[in-house]
Computed example of a mutant assay.
Amino acid sequence: MKKYILSFALALVSLLAFAQTGYEKIMTEKIAKIETCKTPEDFQALANDFQRIGSKESSQWLPAYYAAFASIQKGRVLMRNGNMQELDAIAGQAEKYLATAQNLAGADNAEIHLLRKMAFSLRMMVNPQQRYMTDGVRAAEELNVAEKLDPANPRIALIKAEDTYFTPEQYGGSKTKGIEQFKTALARFNSYKPKTALDPNWGKSEAEYFISLPAEKTK
Rank of each mutant, 00 (worst) to 15 (best):
Q60T: 04
N127T: 01
S55P: 04
G22Y: 11
M125E: 02
I26C: 10
L104E: 06
G92R: 12
Y65H: 15
S71M: 06
Y65F: 15
I31S: 02
M84E: 08
A105T: 00
Y97K: 06
E95R: 11
A101V: 08
R116M: 13
E86D: 15
A91T: 13
K25C: 05
L115I: 13
A99V: 06
L78G: 07
A19G: 04
D135T: 04
K30F: 02
Q130W: 01
Q20Y: 14
E41P: 01
M84Q: 08
I90S: 13
D135W: 09
M84K: 10
L87A: 14
K74N: 08
K96Y: 01
A17Q: 08
N103R: 07
E35Q: 00
E41A: 02
I53R: 05
E41H: 03
S121Y: 09
T36I: 11
A99M: 07
S121V: 13
A47T: 10
K96W: 03
R123D: 01
A119S: 05
D88G: 11
T100E: 09
K96P: 06
E29Q: 06
K38D: 05
I53F: 03
A68M: 15
Y65L: 15
V77D: 00
S71W: 02
F43N: 02
E111L: 05
L62Y: 15
Y97I: 05
V77Y: 00
H113V: 04
Q51E: 07
S55Y: 10
Q93L: 09
R80I: 02
A70P: 09
Q44C: 03
L122Q: 00
Q85V: 04
A94N: 02
